[in-house]
Design a protein around this nucleic acid. Structure first.
Lengths: 216, 216
DNA sequence: GCGTAACCTTACGCACGAGTAGGTATGCTC
DNA sequence: GAGCATACCTACTCGTGCGTAAGGTTACGC
């Protein structure tokens, strides 16, 4: 009823693929700002300049929508990292490039990634999804360490390796949180600090030994 | 209506202080298992063997209840750590004792702490609360590093110190998560691994240098 | 120029769960 | 053993927000 006074159609009809991206953009924005539960499908639809049933038609339920966000952002991040850390470099070089790519990504997608990430940790249905992604990262780091160790004819238990990798990934995520909360902070500098902690350790740092990025 | 067939009163009347603890126990359990939103006040009341209005009467709204949980668990943890790491020990010894106390605590309260922690990160209203607690931890670690540095006549910018501490705390939390998810894992061993990463760094570890707990 | 398919809307049903009203039993005090 | 405070209950209200039914409108093929 009261069929809109079609003076201007206000907005054009757009192909599905485009609308889906708009919706995902809006969803990421709203989910980050409000959190999964507090975010309402109405607000997301509104923010995307579209009505709610369209969101359901294209991306499914709220949970599915959130998973779609996670996937898109996660894939983007993984690509950013994978593209930076070639597997045939020495370990320190690889670690450095990976870290730089990671913090660069987070710095550029502050509210996008870091907050989605924080969200997903808590909510049961997504924790598994997230764990898979983190698992891939841990695997990469553990693989790197293993590779470096084998090159020296040394070997370490798989669990040890995994736990060390887990700690490194955790520290990195933690600094990513810090970066997301400090808009004035510099991504490159944060990566350098992370590299110092991860590569040298507290003992060396207390001795005044520091690591600096290569001239590149 | 249908006023309970008072054959057996089923459960005794208990003083407020006792009931409050029972409620908090139940709340921690349910919040951990379900997450803040998915947890229902009915289930918590049920689990505590009490009816819902009692929960409201004693601990207030759902949010207030959750904050009460956070406070109790957080305080317990802080006490466990503070009691272990005397401020006049050398840095490595202090770090080791703090880590051991921390992982010991998490190991003993797996579903209690770690999951409450995971929950609180995401939800807006509690993030601040949590940030304060983490802030205290970061402060302690940063203070420890600063103390050790000054003893050697060296000095470092406050931000650098804070970020390093932040990374260490993050890595530790991350391993705590890992520990909470691996019931078979040993807390002491996890603490040792963390110490290796934090104190020695990847470079040393790759060189085959390792750290071992003192005879104590 | 007309059918059909895809796009898009308004307006609603409905479940779920936080919080409460109002009443009953029990123990403690004098 | 009357009075009073505190412990405790059953059974509701009511907002909120997910998901959908049913119908309008635009583009495109033929």
């Amino acid at each position: 009823m009261l069929a809109r006074v079609s003076s201007t159609p206000t907005f054009k009809r757009l192909p599905r693929a485009v609308r889906e991206q708009q919706m995902l953009d809006a969803a990421v924005k709203v989910f980050s700002r409000r959190g999964f539960h507090a975010a309402s499908m109405d607000e997301i639809a509104d923010d995307a300049g579209i009505s709610k049933p369209m969101v359901y038609a294209y991306l499914g339920t709220k949970e599915e929508l959130f998973v779609a966000c996670l996937h898109r952002e996660g894939t983007r991040m993984m690509e950013a990292i994978a593209g930076a850390a070639a597997p045939d470099l020495p370990a320190d070089e690889r670690l450095w490039r990976g870290l730089r790519a990671f913090f660069g990504f987070v710095g550029a997608h502050r509210d996008g990634w870091a907050v989605l990430y924080r969200q997903a940790r808590g909510e049961q249905p997504f924790a598994a999804e997230l764990a898979t992604m983190r698992g891939r990262l841990v695997e990469v780091v553990a693989g790197m360490l293993d590779h470096a160790l084998r090159a020296k004819g040394r070997e370490v238990g798989a669990t040890d390796l995994e736990v060390v990798a887990y700690a490194l990934v955790g520290a990195t995520e933690s600094l990513a949180d810090w970066l997301a909360d400090h808009p004035e902070a510099d991504a490159e500098k944060t990566a350098t600090r992370m590299m110092n902690v991860a590569w040298l350790g507290a003992d060396q740092l207390l001795r005044g030994i520091t690591w600096h990025p290569p001239a590149d």
